[in-house]
């Protein structure tokens, strides 16, 4: 491939890509999540059995990933709304993306203990 012919966008394009990827992942989880919740109409045992898998360390890690995807999609979604409806939005889109990522990191650090704490205790004992 000749150098310089492949379009590599900057913040705008990569946030668009990340928004798509996280959106699709969240949507697929949503299907599964409605199905597992529907088990409350089958029996308390069936529901509790499936929910037990949500409490295992491996799935807890996946939940942390889900939280990461949802928080990015939510914060970047608000940025998109600002770009579309706020007159100065397009001019500040890069600043807003870095703000989104900053808030995202803070929230992800905050979610570490609540989401993964029980998994760490289970794996390493105590």
């Amino acid at each position: 491939m000749p150098a310089g012919t492949l379009y590599r966008g900057r913040e705008g394009m990569w946030s668009w890509v990340a928004h798509r990827v996280t959106g699709v992942l969240i949507f697929f989880f949503l299907f599964v999540h409605v199905l597992d919740t529907a088990l409350v109409r089958v029996s308390p045992e069936a529901y509790d059995e499936v929910v037990a898998t949500y409490k295992t360390p491996l799935v807890a890690l996946l939940e942390y990933g889900l939280v990461a995807a949802i928080l990015f999609h939510a914060l970047n979604g608000l940025r998109i709304v600002a770009v579309d409806f706020w007159a100065k939005g397009p001019r500040h889109q890069k600043t807003m993306l870095w703000t989104v990522l900053g808030i995202w990191i803070v929230l992800m650090v905050g979610a570490l203990y609540p989401v993964l704490g029980h998994a760490v205790r289970e794996v390493f004992g105590s």
């Binding site: 409350v40 308390p44 529901y47 509790d48 929910v51 949500y54 409490k55 807890a60 939940e63 939280v67 949802i70 928080l71 939510a74 979604g77 608000l78 998109i80 709304v81 979610a111 609540p114 989401v115 704490g117 029980h118």
Partner: peptide
């Protein structure tokens, strides 16, 4: 999207963070 930010983040707080996180969930 704006409404979902409130609904979903509230949902995550209740289900995964507050009051023991995921461990308390059951029928």
């Amino acid at each position: 999207g704006i409404v979902l930010v409130v609904l979903v983040i509230g949902h995550l707080l209740i289900q995964l963070v507050l009051d023991g996180g995921v461990s308390k969930i059951g029928f």
